[in-house]
Structure formats: structure tokens, C-alpha cells
């Protein structure tokens, strides 16, 4: 069987729509019969990444590849990049504005959650160029 590849454009203009891509992927994985634990891990990890693209990076592109043994998520943005990845990975560390906090984000928990829920995570970031986060969840 060939792998299924899904592609999404994440628009940063409309915060109310943030999470639509993750919602779509969750629905598809469920219908494909992927075990619920793996579906939930993918959904939460991808949703945190999708929100980050919206609040920190002006949107971007998400590619999800579904293979028989794992789900690979690639979240690529052309945002400002992450200056200090070690700091960004710490629980509670955030540069989010008051506006973003009023929307319920900016606890500094997103990247730690993404690491926790994925089986593998890699961040490639260049200041002023953008950030690509790759996450894998084993089925």
C-alpha cells in the first residue's frame, strides 16, 4: 500500500480557524482505524505546532505522511525563527504577548507537549528565515 500524504496551508490571519488542519487529520486517522492513543498523540502534537505557526510565525505549510508504522508531521513556516531552542523547550518559557495570553495560549507548554506526545521530534530553525518542526508518532 502506498503512503497517504496530506497537505495543509495554515493561515495566520484568522485565529478562530487555527486547528482546522489538526482537526481534519484527526478525523481522517480515526476513520482509517488508527488506534485511538496514536490518534490523540498526533492530534495534540500537531495542534500545538499549528497554533505556534499562527501565533509566532505568520502561518505556513503542514505535510502529514501516514505510513503503516508511523505518522510523520512536517510543519514549515517562514516566521522569525527560534533564537534559543533550549530555552524554548523549557516548560513555562514563552515570548507570547498579552493578546495571545488572553486567547488562552502562551503558557510556554506547547513545545514541551509536542516533545511529550511525539515519539521523535526535530526542530530546524534559522533566524529571519523560518522554522521547520518534524514530528513522528509510531502506530
Amino acid at each position: 500500500m502506498s503512503n497517504l500524504v496530506l497537505k495543509y496551508t495554515v493561515d495566520a490571519e484568522d485565529f478562530t480557524r487555527a486547528g482546522e488542519a489538526s482537526s481534519d487529520v484527526k478525523g481522517k486517522l480515526k476513520r482509517m482505524g488508527v488506534p485511538p492513543d496514536a490518534v490523540r498523540k498526533v492530534a495534540i502534537a500537531m495542534y500545538e505546532g499549528e497554533i505556534n505557526m499562527v501565533i509566532h510565525a505568520d502561518g505556513g505549510e503542514i505535510t502529514v505522511e501516514i505510513t503503516p508504522s508511523q505518522i510523520i508531521m512536517i510543519l514549515a513556516d517562514k516566521g522569525p525563527g527560534i533564537k534559543d531552542i533550549d530555552k524554548a523547550m523549557q516548560a513555562g518559557w514563552s515570548t507570547a504577548s498579552e493578546n495571545v495570553r488572553a486567547l488562552g495560549f502562551g503558557a510556554g507548554m506547547g513545545l514541551p507537549n509536542m516533545k511529550k506526545y511525539s515519539d521523535e521530534m526535530k526542530i530546524d530553525t534559522v533566524i529571519g528565515v523560518g522554522t521547520t518542526v518534524t514530528m513522528k508518532v509510531n502506530i
Partner: peptide, 25 residues
């Protein structure tokens, strides 16, 4: 009221209490 706090915990059949009212809830 912080969604990433909520997302840090996995529970089954749970209820979320929040004062935040947007679609992200």
C-alpha cells in the same frame, strides 16, 4: 484558562472547566 496547560494532561472521559470562550476551547 490556558489551553496548553489542558493539553499537557491526558484523561479519559473528562470535563473541561474554563472561563475562556473562543473556538480554540
Amino acid at each position: 484558562d490556558m489551553m496548553s496547560d489542558v493539553l499537557a494532561y491526558v484523561k479519559d472521559q473528562s470535563v473541561l472547566l474554563t472561563g475562556l470562550c473562543n473556538p480554540q476551547v
